[in-house]
Amino acid sequence: MGMMMRAMEMLFGDGRNLIQNTAEVFRVNAEDEAARRVVLQQAALEQFGAEFAQPRKGVFDRMVDGLNRLPRPGLALGTLALFIGAMVDPAWFAARMEGIALVPEPLWWLLGVIVSFYFGARHQAKGQEFQTRVLRDLSMRSGAVPPEENAALSDWQAQGALAGR
């Protein structure tokens, strides 16, 4: 009986579960993973809510934001309209596609660059804004000193400016 107790204590004793700990090396603990997902989803929802909680400054800002939201739905709806047009009036669609076929290749490259830069720049700007906000929120929650109040960082930046970097 003593030997079995020692074996059971070795496997499950002193607050540890050797089998569970060994299994977690090969497979993620489902409960812990679910808890991490919930925390991540809550943070994403909080961030999403905070983005729309901030009031816009004026009519111009609201108008520009509205215009910035038009190209993607416009492209999607325009593409669907072309499909519908092709089914409803194939001759009309063929005439439009002949016109597109006459567009020179450099103009297609230019269009690709413009669209790529528009969406790429917007994606980068929104991503950097999101990261800045998340880092600021995390530093506030953890009690870290914000960068603008960090004396050591300010001194280091001043030395870099003085050294001509």
Rank of each mutant, 00 (worst) to 15 (best):
M97K: 11
D89Y: 07
I114M: 11
P73Y: 09
F93P: 02
M10N: 11
W92D: 02
G127I: 03
N29D: 15
W92H: 05
A95N: 11
Q41F: 13
W92E: 04
R27A: 13
R136L: 01
E33K: 15
D61M: 08
Q42Y: 03
D155N: 04
L111F: 05
A144F: 06
Q54E: 13
I114T: 12
G13D: 07
S142H: 02
P90L: 08
A101C: 09
G120F: 04
K57Y: 01
G15I: 10
A161W: 06
M5N: 10
P147A: 02
L80E: 14
P146A: 05
M3E: 15
Y118T: 13
R16W: 00
D14N: 09
I19C: 03
W108N: 07
G120M: 01
F117T: 05
L111R: 05
A44W: 00
T22S: 12
N150E: 09
Q128T: 01
L77T: 13
A163R: 04
I84G: 11
A43D: 14
R36D: 15
M87T: 05
L162N: 09
K57M: 01
M4S: 13
P90I: 03
R36F: 10
S116W: 02
A158F: 06
V115G: 07
P90K: 09
R27L: 15
M87A: 13
G58L: 03
K126A: 10
R141F: 00
E31K: 14
M8G: 10
G58Q: 06
Q157S: 03
I100A: 15
W92M: 08
G99N: 14
A76Y: 15
G127H: 08
E105I: 03
V145E: 03
N29M: 14
M5Y: 15
N17I: 06
E98S: 08
L111V: 05
L67I: 14
M10V: 09
G143W: 05
G2T: 14
R69H: 07
D65P: 01
I84F: 13
G66F: 11
L80T: 12
Q47S: 06
D61N: 08
A95L: 12
I100V: 15
P146M: 03
K126Q: 12
A101V: 13
